[in-house]
Design a protein around this nucleic acid. Sequence first.
DNA 1: TAATAAAATTAGGTTAACCTAACTATTAAA
DNA 2: TTTAATAGTTAGGTTAACCTAATTTTATTA
Lengths: 227, 227
Amino acid sequence: MKTYREENYLKAVYQLANHDKSKTVSPTDIANWLEVKPPTVLEKLAILVKKGYVTYNKFDGAKLTLTGKDIALNIVRRHRIWETYLYKELKFSWSEVHEIAEQLEHINSDKLIDRIYDVIGNPDFDPHGDPIPNKQGKLPKSDRRPLSQSIKGCKCVVLGVSEHSEVFLNYLTELKIGLNDKLIVEQINAYDDSLKLSTKTKEHILMSAKAAQQILVQCIKPNCACK
Amino acid sequence: MKTYREENYLKAVYQLANHDKSKTVSPTDIANWLEVKPPTVLEKLAILVKKGYVTYNKFDGAKLTLTGKDIALNIVRRHRIWETYLYKELKFSWSEVHEIAEQLEHINSDKLIDRIYDVIGNPDFDPHGDPIPNKQGKLPKSDRRPLSQSIKGCKCVVLGVSEHSEVFLNYLTELKIGLNDKLIVEQINAYDDSLKLSTKTKEHILMSAKAAQQILVQCIKPNCACK
DNA sequence: TAATAAAATTAGGTTAACCTAACTATTAAA
DNA sequence: TTTAATAGTTAGGTTAACCTAATTTTATTA
Protein backbone atom coordinates (compact mmCIF):
# COMPACT_ATOMS: atom_id res chain seq x y z
CA MET A 1 0.00 0.00 0.00
CA LYS A 2 1.61 3.23 -1.14
CA THR A 3 0.07 6.37 0.28
CA TYR A 4 0.66 9.71 -1.35
CA ARG A 5 2.84 10.67 1.60
CA GLU A 6 5.05 7.67 1.05
CA GLU A 7 5.22 8.52 -2.64
CA ASN A 8 6.25 12.06 -1.71
CA TYR A 9 9.07 10.88 0.51
CA LEU A 10 10.42 8.59 -2.18
CA LYS A 11 10.13 11.31 -4.79
CA ALA A 12 11.93 13.72 -2.47
CA VAL A 13 14.84 11.32 -2.03
CA TYR A 14 15.01 10.83 -5.77
CA GLN A 15 14.91 14.51 -6.57
CA LEU A 16 17.42 15.52 -3.92
CA ALA A 17 19.81 12.80 -5.03
CA ASN A 18 19.54 14.02 -8.60
CA HIS A 19 19.75 17.65 -7.76
CA ASP A 20 23.24 17.33 -6.39
CA LYS A 21 24.77 13.98 -7.16
CA SER A 22 27.89 14.63 -5.11
CA LYS A 23 25.98 15.12 -1.87
CA THR A 24 24.27 12.54 0.29
CA VAL A 25 20.56 12.99 1.00
CA SER A 26 20.31 13.90 4.67
CA PRO A 27 17.21 13.83 6.87
CA THR A 28 17.47 17.61 7.13
CA ASP A 29 17.49 17.97 3.36
CA ILE A 30 14.36 15.89 3.09
CA ALA A 31 12.75 17.77 5.95
CA ASN A 32 13.37 21.12 4.28
CA TRP A 33 12.19 19.83 0.94
CA LEU A 34 8.94 18.45 2.29
CA GLU A 35 8.48 21.22 4.82
CA VAL A 36 8.42 18.97 7.85
CA LYS A 37 10.85 18.61 10.75
CA PRO A 38 13.79 16.19 10.83
CA PRO A 39 12.35 13.84 13.47
CA THR A 40 9.33 13.28 11.24
CA VAL A 41 11.65 12.33 8.42
CA LEU A 42 13.69 9.96 10.58
CA GLU A 43 10.53 8.21 11.63
CA LYS A 44 9.33 7.80 8.07
CA LEU A 45 12.76 6.73 6.84
CA ALA A 46 12.73 3.89 9.36
CA ILE A 47 9.45 2.69 7.87
CA LEU A 48 10.70 3.02 4.31
CA VAL A 49 13.85 1.10 5.23
CA LYS A 50 11.73 -1.65 6.75
CA LYS A 51 9.64 -1.79 3.58
CA GLY A 52 12.77 -2.08 1.49
CA TYR A 53 12.36 1.17 -0.43
CA VAL A 54 15.42 3.00 0.91
CA THR A 55 18.62 2.42 2.81
CA TYR A 56 19.77 4.90 5.39
CA ASN A 57 22.72 5.60 7.61
CA LYS A 58 24.20 8.82 8.87
CA PHE A 59 27.17 8.76 6.53
CA ASP A 60 25.66 7.73 3.20
CA GLY A 61 22.33 9.42 3.87
CA ALA A 62 19.13 8.07 2.33
CA LYS A 63 19.40 6.06 -0.88
CA LEU A 64 16.62 4.50 -2.90
CA THR A 65 16.69 0.76 -3.41
CA LEU A 66 15.74 -0.56 -6.84
CA THR A 67 12.15 -0.96 -5.72
CA GLY A 68 12.13 2.52 -4.23
CA LYS A 69 13.60 4.02 -7.37
CA ASP A 70 10.94 2.28 -9.45
CA ILE A 71 8.22 3.89 -7.40
CA ALA A 72 9.90 7.29 -7.45
CA LEU A 73 10.40 7.21 -11.21
CA ASN A 74 6.81 6.24 -11.69
CA ILE A 75 5.70 9.32 -9.79
CA VAL A 76 8.11 11.49 -11.74
CA ARG A 77 6.62 9.97 -14.88
CA ARG A 78 3.09 10.76 -13.81
CA HIS A 79 4.07 14.24 -12.72
CA ARG A 80 5.71 15.12 -16.01
CA ILE A 81 2.91 13.63 -18.06
CA TRP A 82 0.33 15.68 -16.18
CA GLU A 83 2.44 18.82 -16.44
CA THR A 84 2.73 18.37 -20.17
CA TYR A 85 -0.96 17.69 -20.48
CA LEU A 86 -1.93 20.76 -18.45
CA TYR A 87 0.45 22.95 -20.38
CA LYS A 88 -0.10 21.71 -23.90
CA GLU A 89 -3.71 20.59 -23.88
CA LEU A 90 -5.35 22.72 -21.23
CA LYS A 91 -3.28 25.85 -21.87
CA PHE A 92 -2.09 26.38 -18.34
CA SER A 93 0.99 28.53 -17.90
CA TRP A 94 4.14 26.73 -16.87
CA SER A 95 4.08 28.35 -13.46
CA GLU A 96 0.58 27.05 -12.69
CA VAL A 97 1.25 23.54 -13.84
CA HIS A 98 3.47 22.23 -11.07
CA GLU A 99 1.11 22.66 -8.16
CA ILE A 100 -1.76 20.87 -9.88
CA ALA A 101 0.51 18.09 -11.13
CA GLU A 102 1.66 17.57 -7.54
CA GLN A 103 -1.88 16.52 -6.79
CA LEU A 104 -2.64 14.66 -9.99
CA GLU A 105 0.52 12.56 -9.82
CA HIS A 106 -0.99 10.60 -6.93
CA ILE A 107 -4.10 9.52 -8.79
CA ASN A 108 -3.92 5.78 -8.83
CA SER A 109 -4.82 4.61 -12.33
CA ASP A 110 -2.24 3.37 -14.81
CA LYS A 111 -4.85 3.37 -17.51
CA LEU A 112 -5.60 7.04 -16.93
CA ILE A 113 -1.94 7.97 -17.24
CA ASP A 114 -1.65 5.87 -20.39
CA ARG A 115 -4.57 7.68 -21.99
CA ILE A 116 -3.31 11.11 -20.99
CA TYR A 117 0.11 10.17 -22.33
CA ASP A 118 -1.54 9.25 -25.62
CA VAL A 119 -3.36 12.57 -25.71
CA ILE A 120 -0.08 14.47 -25.45
CA GLY A 121 1.47 12.29 -28.16
CA ASN A 122 3.77 10.02 -26.12
CA PRO A 123 6.69 12.44 -25.91
CA ASP A 124 10.06 11.55 -24.38
CA PHE A 125 10.50 14.99 -22.83
CA ASP A 126 8.17 17.44 -21.17
CA PRO A 127 7.82 21.03 -22.41
CA HIS A 128 10.77 22.13 -20.29
CA GLY A 129 13.01 19.43 -21.56
CA ASP A 130 12.79 17.12 -18.58
CA PRO A 131 12.84 13.47 -19.58
CA ILE A 132 9.68 11.43 -18.98
CA PRO A 133 10.59 7.98 -17.61
CA ASN A 134 8.89 5.12 -19.43
CA LYS A 135 6.63 2.60 -17.70
CA GLN A 136 9.63 0.49 -16.77
CA GLY A 137 11.24 3.49 -15.11
CA LYS A 138 13.86 3.98 -17.83
CA LEU A 139 14.75 7.54 -18.69
CA PRO A 140 15.09 8.36 -22.39
CA LYS A 141 18.72 9.05 -23.00
CA SER A 142 20.04 12.31 -24.25
CA ASP A 143 23.30 14.23 -24.22
CA ARG A 144 21.87 17.04 -22.14
CA ARG A 145 24.41 18.80 -19.98
CA PRO A 146 24.62 22.18 -18.31
CA LEU A 147 25.51 25.09 -20.55
CA SER A 148 28.23 25.90 -18.00
CA GLN A 149 30.23 22.91 -19.24
CA SER A 150 30.60 24.41 -22.70
CA ILE A 151 33.88 25.56 -24.16
CA LYS A 152 34.44 28.65 -26.25
CA GLY A 153 32.98 28.41 -29.73
CA CYS A 154 30.52 25.69 -28.85
CA LYS A 155 27.24 25.65 -30.76
CA CYS A 156 24.44 24.06 -28.86
CA VAL A 157 20.67 23.86 -28.54
CA VAL A 158 18.66 24.50 -25.39
CA LEU A 159 16.87 21.32 -24.31
CA GLY A 160 15.70 22.26 -20.85
CA VAL A 161 16.36 23.85 -17.51
CA SER A 162 17.28 22.35 -14.15
CA GLU A 163 15.69 25.13 -12.20
CA HIS A 164 12.01 25.84 -12.61
CA SER A 165 11.60 28.87 -10.41
CA GLU A 166 9.51 31.69 -11.76
CA VAL A 167 12.28 34.23 -11.32
CA PHE A 168 14.69 32.13 -13.34
CA LEU A 169 12.22 31.42 -16.11
CA ASN A 170 11.35 35.11 -16.34
CA TYR A 171 15.04 35.91 -16.57
CA LEU A 172 15.39 33.57 -19.54
CA THR A 173 12.37 35.11 -21.20
CA GLU A 174 14.00 38.50 -20.79
CA LEU A 175 17.18 37.26 -22.43
CA LYS A 176 15.00 35.81 -25.21
CA ILE A 177 16.36 32.36 -24.57
CA GLY A 178 13.80 29.61 -24.98
CA LEU A 179 13.48 25.91 -25.53
CA ASN A 180 15.11 24.66 -28.74
CA ASP A 181 16.93 27.93 -29.30
CA LYS A 182 20.44 27.62 -30.69
CA LEU A 183 23.25 29.25 -28.75
CA ILE A 184 26.83 30.05 -29.63
CA VAL A 185 29.30 30.44 -26.80
CA GLU A 186 31.31 33.47 -27.87
CA GLN A 187 33.50 33.76 -24.88
CA ILE A 188 34.05 32.45 -21.37
CA ASN A 189 35.33 34.75 -18.69
CA ALA A 190 38.15 32.96 -16.89
CA TYR A 191 37.65 34.95 -13.70
CA ASP A 192 34.03 34.21 -12.83
CA ASP A 193 33.11 31.65 -15.51
CA SER A 194 30.45 33.96 -16.91
CA LEU A 195 29.59 33.47 -20.57
CA LYS A 196 29.04 35.67 -23.56
CA LEU A 197 26.47 34.10 -25.85
CA SER A 198 24.69 34.86 -29.06
CA THR A 199 21.46 33.58 -30.53
CA LYS A 200 19.75 34.20 -33.85
CA THR A 201 17.85 37.14 -32.40
CA LYS A 202 20.38 38.59 -29.99
CA GLU A 203 24.14 38.97 -29.73
CA HIS A 204 26.55 39.39 -26.83
CA ILE A 205 24.27 38.06 -24.18
CA LEU A 206 26.06 38.10 -20.83
CA MET A 207 25.22 35.26 -18.47
CA SER A 208 26.53 34.30 -15.04
CA ALA A 209 27.94 30.85 -14.38
CA LYS A 210 25.13 30.32 -11.92
CA ALA A 211 22.50 30.77 -14.61
CA ALA A 212 24.47 28.71 -17.12
CA GLN A 213 24.48 25.80 -14.72
CA GLN A 214 20.71 25.69 -14.84
CA ILE A 215 20.41 25.61 -18.62
CA LEU A 216 20.57 22.19 -20.23
CA VAL A 217 21.96 22.03 -23.72
CA GLN A 218 23.23 19.58 -26.30
CA CYS A 219 26.07 20.24 -28.74
CA ILE A 220 24.94 20.55 -32.32
CA LYS A 221 28.12 19.35 -33.98
CA PRO A 222 28.52 15.61 -33.41
CA ASN A 223 32.15 15.74 -32.30
CA CYS A 224 32.16 18.96 -30.37
CA ALA A 225 34.98 19.32 -27.88
CA CYS A 226 32.56 20.03 -25.00
CA LYS A 227 32.57 17.12 -22.66
CA MET B 1 -9.48 23.58 5.28
CA LYS B 2 -11.46 20.83 3.57
CA THR B 3 -9.73 17.48 3.45
CA TYR B 4 -10.85 14.83 1.03
CA ARG B 5 -12.27 12.87 3.95
CA GLU B 6 -14.40 15.78 4.98
CA GLU B 7 -15.55 16.16 1.40
CA ASN B 8 -16.48 12.50 1.35
CA TYR B 9 -18.57 12.75 4.47
CA LEU B 10 -20.47 15.74 3.11
CA LYS B 11 -20.97 14.03 -0.21
CA ALA B 12 -22.24 10.93 1.56
CA VAL B 13 -24.83 12.93 3.48
CA TYR B 14 -25.92 14.60 0.27
CA GLN B 15 -26.19 11.39 -1.67
CA LEU B 16 -27.98 9.46 1.06
CA ALA B 17 -30.46 12.30 1.55
CA ASN B 18 -31.16 12.34 -2.19
CA HIS B 19 -31.31 8.61 -2.55
CA ASP B 20 -34.32 8.32 -0.29
CA LYS B 21 -35.85 11.69 0.49
CA SER B 22 -38.36 10.29 2.94
CA LYS B 23 -35.70 8.85 5.24
CA THR B 24 -33.38 10.63 7.62
CA VAL B 25 -29.64 10.14 7.17
CA SER B 26 -28.49 8.09 10.16
CA PRO B 27 -24.93 7.57 11.37
CA THR B 28 -25.29 3.91 10.48
CA ASP B 29 -26.30 4.78 6.93
CA ILE B 30 -23.26 6.97 6.55
CA ALA B 31 -21.05 4.33 8.13
CA ASN B 32 -22.23 1.67 5.68
CA TRP B 33 -21.88 4.04 2.75
CA LEU B 34 -18.32 5.03 3.61
CA GLU B 35 -17.35 1.61 4.90
CA VAL B 36 -16.43 2.77 8.37
CA LYS B 37 -18.02 2.06 11.75
CA PRO B 38 -20.74 4.20 13.35
CA PRO B 39 -18.55 5.64 16.15
CA THR B 40 -16.20 7.01 13.52
CA VAL B 41 -19.11 8.72 11.85
CA LEU B 42 -20.42 10.17 15.12
CA GLU B 43 -17.02 11.62 15.82
CA LYS B 44 -16.75 13.22 12.40
CA LEU B 45 -20.32 14.48 12.51
CA ALA B 46 -19.53 16.36 15.71
CA ILE B 47 -16.69 18.10 13.91
CA LEU B 48 -18.82 18.89 10.87
CA VAL B 49 -21.54 20.27 13.15
CA LYS B 50 -18.98 22.48 14.87
CA LYS B 51 -17.76 23.71 11.50
CA GLY B 52 -21.31 24.54 10.50
CA TYR B 53 -21.55 22.11 7.59
CA VAL B 54 -24.25 19.82 8.99
CA THR B 55 -26.83 19.63 11.73
CA TYR B 56 -27.38 16.41 13.58
CA ASN B 57 -29.71 14.91 16.12
CA LYS B 58 -30.91 11.40 16.63
CA PHE B 59 -34.39 12.08 15.28
CA ASP B 60 -33.74 14.18 12.18
CA GLY B 61 -30.44 12.51 11.39
CA ALA B 62 -27.70 14.42 9.60
CA LYS B 63 -28.68 17.34 7.40
CA LEU B 64 -26.44 19.58 5.35
CA THR B 65 -26.46 23.29 6.11
CA LEU B 66 -26.37 25.69 3.18
CA THR B 67 -22.60 25.84 3.42
CA GLY B 68 -22.37 22.07 3.65
CA LYS B 69 -24.66 21.63 0.68
CA ASP B 70 -22.53 24.05 -1.33
CA ILE B 71 -19.46 21.98 -0.68
CA ALA B 72 -21.25 18.71 -1.40
CA LEU B 73 -22.69 20.00 -4.67
CA ASN B 74 -19.28 21.22 -5.71
CA ILE B 75 -17.87 17.74 -5.26
CA VAL B 76 -20.79 16.24 -7.14
CA ARG B 77 -20.07 18.77 -9.88
CA ARG B 78 -16.42 17.81 -10.04
CA HIS B 79 -17.25 14.12 -9.95
CA ARG B 80 -19.71 14.31 -12.84
CA ILE B 81 -17.45 16.52 -14.91
CA TRP B 82 -14.57 14.07 -14.51
CA GLU B 83 -16.83 11.10 -15.25
CA THR B 84 -18.02 12.74 -18.42
CA TYR B 85 -14.49 13.63 -19.42
CA LEU B 86 -13.19 10.13 -18.81
CA TYR B 87 -16.08 8.60 -20.70
CA LYS B 88 -16.37 10.94 -23.64
CA GLU B 89 -12.81 12.15 -24.15
CA LEU B 90 -10.65 9.33 -22.85
CA LYS B 91 -12.96 6.51 -23.94
CA PHE B 92 -13.24 4.79 -20.60
CA SER B 93 -16.22 2.50 -20.13
CA TRP B 94 -18.94 3.72 -17.80
CA SER B 95 -18.09 1.07 -15.25
CA GLU B 96 -14.44 2.19 -15.01
CA VAL B 97 -15.23 5.83 -14.72
CA HIS B 98 -16.62 6.07 -11.21
CA GLU B 99 -13.61 4.81 -9.30
CA ILE B 100 -11.19 7.18 -11.00
CA ALA B 101 -13.57 10.12 -10.65
CA GLU B 102 -13.77 9.38 -6.92
CA GLN B 103 -10.10 10.28 -6.78
CA LEU B 104 -10.09 13.11 -9.29
CA GLU B 105 -13.01 14.91 -7.64
CA HIS B 106 -10.74 15.87 -4.76
CA ILE B 107 -8.15 17.64 -6.88
CA ASN B 108 -8.18 21.17 -5.63
CA SER B 109 -8.15 23.46 -8.66
CA ASP B 110 -11.19 25.33 -9.86
CA LYS B 111 -9.35 26.34 -12.97
CA LEU B 112 -8.64 22.72 -13.84
CA ILE B 113 -12.32 21.79 -13.51
CA ASP B 114 -13.29 24.80 -15.62
CA ARG B 115 -10.92 23.74 -18.40
CA ILE B 116 -12.05 20.12 -18.30
CA TYR B 117 -15.66 21.31 -18.35
CA ASP B 118 -14.83 23.33 -21.47
CA VAL B 119 -13.25 20.30 -23.09
CA ILE B 120 -16.45 18.28 -22.66
CA GLY B 121 -18.52 21.18 -24.00
CA ASN B 122 -20.14 22.56 -20.84
CA PRO B 123 -23.02 20.09 -20.71
CA ASP B 124 -25.85 20.29 -18.17
CA PHE B 125 -26.07 16.53 -17.80
CA ASP B 126 -23.51 13.75 -17.68
CA PRO B 127 -23.66 10.79 -20.09
CA HIS B 128 -26.04 8.95 -17.79
CA GLY B 129 -28.40 11.83 -17.48
CA ASP B 130 -27.32 13.02 -14.05
CA PRO B 131 -27.43 16.79 -13.74
CA ILE B 132 -24.13 18.63 -13.31
CA PRO B 133 -24.50 21.40 -10.70
CA ASN B 134 -23.18 24.76 -11.84
CA LYS B 135 -20.45 26.66 -10.02
CA GLN B 136 -23.01 28.21 -7.72
CA GLY B 137 -24.29 24.78 -6.77
CA LYS B 138 -27.54 25.10 -8.73
CA LEU B 139 -28.78 22.00 -10.49
CA PRO B 140 -30.04 22.47 -14.03
CA LYS B 141 -33.76 21.96 -13.90
CA SER B 142 -35.55 19.32 -15.81
CA ASP B 143 -38.81 17.44 -15.61
CA ARG B 144 -37.09 14.14 -15.01
CA ARG B 145 -39.12 11.71 -12.99
CA PRO B 146 -39.11 7.93 -12.53
CA LEU B 147 -40.73 5.93 -15.30
CA SER B 148 -42.76 4.25 -12.56
CA GLN B 149 -44.83 7.43 -12.18
CA SER B 150 -46.16 7.16 -15.73
CA ILE B 151 -49.78 6.48 -16.58
CA LYS B 152 -50.99 4.25 -19.37
CA GLY B 153 -50.47 5.70 -22.83
CA CYS B 154 -47.71 8.04 -21.76
CA LYS B 155 -44.99 8.78 -24.32
CA CYS B 156 -41.71 9.73 -22.77
CA VAL B 157 -37.99 9.91 -23.39
CA VAL B 158 -35.29 8.30 -21.27
CA LEU B 159 -33.07 10.97 -19.69
CA GLY B 160 -31.13 8.96 -17.16
CA VAL B 161 -31.02 6.32 -14.48
CA SER B 162 -30.96 6.59 -10.69
CA GLU B 163 -29.12 3.35 -10.25
CA HIS B 164 -25.71 2.91 -11.81
CA SER B 165 -24.96 -0.67 -10.91
CA GLU B 166 -23.45 -2.79 -13.62
CA VAL B 167 -26.18 -5.41 -13.36
CA PHE B 168 -28.89 -2.82 -13.87
CA LEU B 169 -27.15 -1.16 -16.79
CA ASN B 170 -26.61 -4.53 -18.44
CA TYR B 171 -30.27 -5.30 -17.94
CA LEU B 172 -31.22 -2.11 -19.80
CA THR B 173 -28.82 -2.93 -22.58
CA GLU B 174 -30.50 -6.30 -22.91
CA LEU B 175 -33.91 -4.67 -23.17
CA LYS B 176 -32.41 -2.33 -25.79
CA ILE B 177 -33.34 0.70 -23.71
CA GLY B 178 -30.80 3.49 -23.83
CA LEU B 179 -30.40 7.18 -23.19
CA ASN B 180 -32.70 9.39 -25.29
CA ASP B 181 -34.82 6.43 -26.40
CA LYS B 182 -38.52 7.10 -26.65
CA LEU B 183 -40.86 4.84 -24.70
CA ILE B 184 -44.59 4.28 -24.86
CA VAL B 185 -46.29 2.89 -21.76
CA GLU B 186 -48.68 0.36 -23.24
CA GLN B 187 -50.07 -1.00 -20.05
CA ILE B 188 -49.63 -0.95 -16.28
CA ASN B 189 -50.31 -4.07 -14.29
CA ALA B 190 -52.49 -3.07 -11.33
CA TYR B 191 -51.32 -5.99 -9.21
CA ASP B 192 -47.55 -5.47 -9.09
CA ASP B 193 -47.19 -2.14 -10.94
CA SER B 194 -45.12 -3.76 -13.65
CA LEU B 195 -45.19 -2.07 -17.04
CA LYS B 196 -45.53 -3.12 -20.63
CA LEU B 197 -43.53 -0.81 -22.86
CA SER B 198 -42.68 -0.38 -26.47
CA THR B 199 -39.84 1.40 -28.22
CA LYS B 200 -39.08 1.96 -31.87
CA THR B 201 -37.05 -1.22 -32.04
CA LYS B 202 -38.98 -3.47 -29.67
CA GLU B 203 -42.57 -4.01 -28.59
CA HIS B 204 -44.20 -5.44 -25.47
CA ILE B 205 -41.23 -5.03 -23.19
CA LEU B 206 -42.11 -6.22 -19.73
CA MET B 207 -40.54 -4.32 -16.85
CA SER B 208 -40.87 -4.60 -13.08
CA ALA B 209 -41.87 -1.61 -10.97
CA LYS B 210 -38.49 -1.87 -9.28
CA ALA B 211 -36.67 -1.32 -12.54
CA ALA B 212 -39.08 1.42 -13.65
CA GLN B 213 -38.30 3.36 -10.49
CA GLN B 214 -34.67 3.60 -11.53
CA ILE B 215 -35.32 4.94 -15.03
CA LEU B 216 -35.67 8.69 -15.33
CA VAL B 217 -37.90 9.99 -18.10
CA GLN B 218 -39.62 13.11 -19.29
CA CYS B 219 -43.02 13.25 -20.99
CA ILE B 220 -42.85 14.19 -24.64
CA LYS B 221 -46.26 15.81 -24.95
CA PRO B 222 -46.29 19.14 -23.09
CA ASN B 223 -49.54 18.53 -21.19
CA CYS B 224 -49.23 14.86 -20.49
CA ALA B 225 -51.37 13.60 -17.65
CA CYS B 226 -48.36 12.04 -15.87
CA LYS B 227 -47.60 13.99 -12.76
C1' DT C 1 -46.38 -4.49 27.34
C1' DA C 2 -42.38 -7.17 28.17
C1' DA C 3 -38.74 -9.08 25.56
C1' DT C 4 -35.76 -8.68 21.91
C1' DA C 5 -33.42 -6.63 18.24
C1' DA C 6 -31.29 -2.76 16.28
C1' DA C 7 -29.35 1.72 16.42
C1' DA C 8 -27.00 5.40 18.86
C1' DT C 9 -23.68 6.62 22.00
C1' DT C 10 -19.75 6.49 25.20
C1' DA C 11 -15.32 4.90 26.73
C1' DG C 12 -11.09 3.76 25.72
C1' DG C 13 -7.49 2.10 22.49
C1' DT C 14 -4.40 2.13 18.04
C1' DT C 15 -1.71 4.04 14.29
C1' DA C 16 0.28 7.47 11.20
C1' DA C 17 2.08 11.70 10.82
C1' DC C 18 3.18 15.40 12.61
C1' DC C 19 5.42 18.32 16.54
C1' DT C 20 8.93 20.39 20.45
C1' DA C 21 12.59 19.91 23.59
C1' DA C 22 16.61 17.83 24.93
C1' DC C 23 20.66 15.41 24.00
C1' DT C 24 24.60 13.57 21.22
C1' DA C 25 27.62 13.46 17.45
C1' DT C 26 29.84 15.79 13.77
C1' DT C 27 31.79 19.58 11.41
C1' DA C 28 33.61 24.16 11.06
C1' DA C 29 35.81 28.13 12.95
C1' DA C 30 38.54 30.68 15.98
C1' DT D 1 42.55 21.91 19.65
C1' DT D 2 39.02 23.89 22.06
C1' DT D 3 34.68 26.16 21.05
C1' DA D 4 30.75 27.00 18.64
C1' DA D 5 27.53 25.79 15.33
C1' DT D 6 25.04 22.44 12.89
C1' DA D 7 23.07 17.97 12.05
C1' DG D 8 21.29 13.67 13.75
C1' DT D 9 18.76 11.27 17.21
C1' DT D 10 15.76 10.10 21.11
C1' DA D 11 11.93 10.90 24.10
C1' DG D 12 7.63 12.13 24.65
C1' DG D 13 3.41 14.62 23.23
C1' DT D 14 -0.71 15.91 19.91
C1' DT D 15 -4.32 15.22 16.53
C1' DA D 16 -7.16 12.89 13.10
C1' DA D 17 -9.21 8.95 11.83
C1' DC D 18 -9.92 4.80 12.58
C1' DC D 19 -11.27 0.70 15.74
C1' DT D 20 -13.77 -2.69 19.53
C1' DA D 21 -16.50 -3.40 23.45
C1' DA D 22 -19.88 -1.91 26.46
C1' DT D 23 -23.86 0.76 27.42
C1' DT D 24 -27.99 3.26 26.62
C1' DT D 25 -31.89 4.35 23.61
C1' DT D 26 -35.27 3.41 20.46
C1' DA D 27 -37.99 0.42 17.74
C1' DT D 28 -40.10 -4.00 16.81
C1' DT D 29 -42.52 -7.95 17.72
C1' DA D 30 -44.29 -11.81 20.16
